[in-house]
Amino acid sequence: MKLVYFASVREAIGLSSEDRDIPCDARTIGDFVIWLRGQSQEHAVALDDLSRLRFALDQNMVTADALLGDGKELAIFPPVTGG
């Protein structure tokens, strides 16, 4: 799956995007994010608090309990602050 990061999450991880295989026991976005924390110190810090993260699966806003399904692109970012 393609992962896309924005704003403070992008800075903390040090990447704007990366490709990762979904582990077979990850069903939801939350499962996948918890697994991602173990991939590096930077991921652990950036993804530490699920309640402060927002997600878009194939560019649709979803919550952490949403199923990954056949999604191609998962974006992870802090709450939006436009306008």
Binding site: A7, S8, F77, P78, V80, T81, G82, G83
Partner: peptide, 10 residues
Amino acid sequence: LKTDAPFWKR
């Protein structure tokens, strides 16, 4: 727009 659109300010 403020709560839904994917913009971030620094």
